[in-house]
Design a protein around this nucleic acid. Structure first.
Length: 595
DNA sequence: GCCGTTTTCGGCCCGACTGTTTTCAGTCG
């Protein structure tokens, strides 16, 4: 029998981080539903999140290694190891037998939590969202203790909401809505400050709800302004300090909606409120625990002496962190993934900022699938004040793009003319780089022969097909592409489409090694439906010695503005300008591309 | 269940809003 070299490298793969995290999360939820100790529940949730964001492969670790992960102690480590070895998680199986899967699904309904879901199951035998819907229609909830007509109504609305697809909103759609609301609220008489906070300020890739914070002595006119917006579909809650509504989102004609929370505070506690309202919840808990240990109390109203209740500070976030002995933590880092400890050790890195990006390294024109001409793209890039700009149209193997070597060479000539044409008008000229986006074939090869590739200033190589290869094949495919001396950057490495297509299955540790060894950068693609490489992988890649290119992959002039989402993603991955090749001056960039 | 320049035991963030309640539990962030 002929041996298959790929097959031989496959071992029985242990469960990956996400799978382990999923089991722990499920166990936490089932514990909560069955009324388990809330602190234990919180711990399992924390361990799940911690493993989900862990940069190594938790499935490869023994008990001692697992316990080094924050939130994982003796007991959870033992459960994970047992699960890896025997495939059995006894306590989880026991709870699964007590709580049908449908009951857990019921807790996803807004306004229906674990306690009521379990009550509905034990007292009425309701064990799915559909059964719950029927029970409400039959009026069976009314006689239940703790339920009434209003709760029936809220749960009914919640069921409609969960049945609608795509509950989380892309970051750019949420940002547009947030900007509009901030403009409306800011214009109200008496509004002293207004900005968005929450997951949007932290640059999460999708947004569950939009959090708006405002400062005013009298909250009523601000709340009224929000309620009067024509996009408001329904009011979830409305009080003196907080109003929650659902607002419609139009995405390419698709109906949708998102929850918006408006919180109004007095101006003098702005910093404390912004810190609180930005989250994440896990970060806030970690920070508040530090406050408690110092005999202080932190809330959205300020930092107080625990004993006397005297206010210490509340005006700015910086003062609050400083008073707790912490470095200021930039919002995108606030996920309780080690940043609080880093802040205590005064090791918060100087994150890359939008202003430090000197050029965009991935763009398309009408020569392939862009909708703006070369001249339009270049002039838009110049308007951004970039020091350099790369045009990287698709290569021939993406057949529908009908690229040829002749078209490519003609574009290069046009590009050189454009570049020389700008001399003499006084301003520092923007350097134009001629590049291409190659297609990584299933075997790892790319479109053009090496001598053709050598004519480009830069080559991106991306996976555009055969997404379902096995991990071993995919990993070998990437390594082969990295080893091509002409390939400088791997484009949108996981090839995921957020909410639509999962990323390819690749051994990330091996990919990072290959990139580091060959001097190949990984792209952080700024398209909101990509955000790829995802932020969760960035720290591991950087620790392996990988450099990154933050690019927009623009197919239109307006898309150049998407760079901020790529920068936000890089900030979530703790990256500094030194990690980002397009934050470097042209000379250093050229050296990297030539190496 | 985790964690510790106060602790290996005894804590574990904090507050707003709602609905069904005569004082509070549940949900949410």
């Amino acid at each position: 029998m002929i041996s298959n070299p790929i097959r031989e490298t496959i071992r029985i793969m242990p469960r990956g981080n996400e799978e382990i995290a999923g089991l722990l999360q499920e166990y936490a939820e089932l514990l909560q539903i069955t009324g388990g100790d809330p602190f234990r529940t919180r711990n399992y949730e924390k361990a799940a999140k911690s493993i989900s964001g862990f940069s190594g492969d938790a499935g490869q670790l023994d008990e001692a290694g697992l316990q080094k992960i924050v939130g994982v102690g003796k007991s959870i480590a033992a459960k994970i190891v047992e699960c890896q070895l025997s495939g059995v998680f006894t306590q989880l199986s026991e709870l699964r037998a007590k709580v049908p899967e449908g009951v857990r699904a019921m807790t996803r309904i807004p306004a229906l939590g674990p306690k009521h879901a379990f009550q509905l199951y034990t007292e009425l035998g309701i064990s799915s969202v559909d059964e719950l819907s029927d029970a409400i229609a039959e009026g069976r909830l009314r006689d239940l203790k703790g339920f009434g007509a209003r709760s029936e109504e809220k749960i009914s609305r919640g069921i409609e909401l969960v049945r609608g697809l795509d509950q989380r909103t892309p970051i750019n759609v949420a940002a547009e809505i947030a900007d509009r609301i901030v403009a409306v609220i800011s214009a109200v008489d008496g509004c002293e400050r207004c900005q968005y906070a929450g997951s949007l300020r932290r640059f999460m890739e999708t947004i569950g709800d939009v959090d708006i914070l405002a400062a005013a002595a009298d909250s009523a006119p601000l709340m009224a302004a929000l309620l009067a917006m024509p996009q408001v579909q329904s009011v979830i809650a409305s009080g003196d300090t907080k109003t929650s509504v659902r607002i419609s989102t139009e995405q390419a004609g698709q109906p949708g909606s998102i929850q918006v929370d408006l919180r109004v505070v007095p101006a003098d506690c702005w910093g404390a409120a912004l810190q609180y309202f930005t989250g994440s919840q896990a970060h806030n808990i970690a920070v508040r625990e530090i406050a408690v240990r110092k005999k202080l109390k932190l809330s959205e109203y300020g930092l107080f002496e625990a004993e006397s209740g005297d206010l210490i500070t509340s005006a700015t976030e910086e003062e609050i962190y400083a008073r707790l002995g912490l470095d200021f933590v930039p919002a995108p880092m606030r996920e309780d993934r080690g940043e609080v400890q880093a802040a205590a050790r005064h090791e918060i890195p100087a994150l890359v900022s939008l202003a430090e990006i000197l050029g965009d390294l991935h763009s398309h024109t009408t020569l392939t699938d862009g909708v703006a001409s070369l001249e339009e793209m270049v002039s838009a890039a110049r308007a951004k004040g970039y020091a350099y700009f790369a045009v990287t149209d698709h290569a021939p193997n993406l057949f529908m793009q009908r690229m040829t070597i002749e078209k490519m060479l003609a574009q290069r000539e046009q590009l050189h003319k454009l570049e020389s044409g700008q001399a003499g008008n006084g301003a520092t000229p923007m350097i134009l780089l001629h590049g291409t986006e190659l297609n990584i074939a299933p075997d790892g090869s790319v479109d053009w022969p090496e001598d053709v590739l050598a004519g480009f200033d830069l080559c991106i190589a991306s996976v555009h097909s055969h997404f379902d290869q096995s991990r071993a094949e995919m990993t070998r495919r990437f390594r082969f592409a990295c080893e091509n001396p002409q390939v400088n950057i791997i484009g949108h490495p996981t090839a995921r489409r957020i909410g639509k297509r999962a990323g390819v299955d690749v051994d990330f540790a091996e990919l990072f090694r290959a990139c580091a060894e060959t001097g190949t950068a990984l792209e952080i693609n700024s398209q909101p439906q990509r955000l790829d490489l995802p932020s969760d992988h960035l720290r591991a890649a950087r620790d392996a010695g990988v450099k990154f290119a933050i690019s927009t992959d623009s197919h239109a002039v307006g898309a150049l503005d998407l760079l901020r989402y790529g920068v936000g993603t890089a900030q979530r991955g703790w990256l500094t300008p030194d990690d980002i090749i397009n934050a470097w001056p042209l000379e250093r960039l050229r050296e990297f591309l030539a190496a």
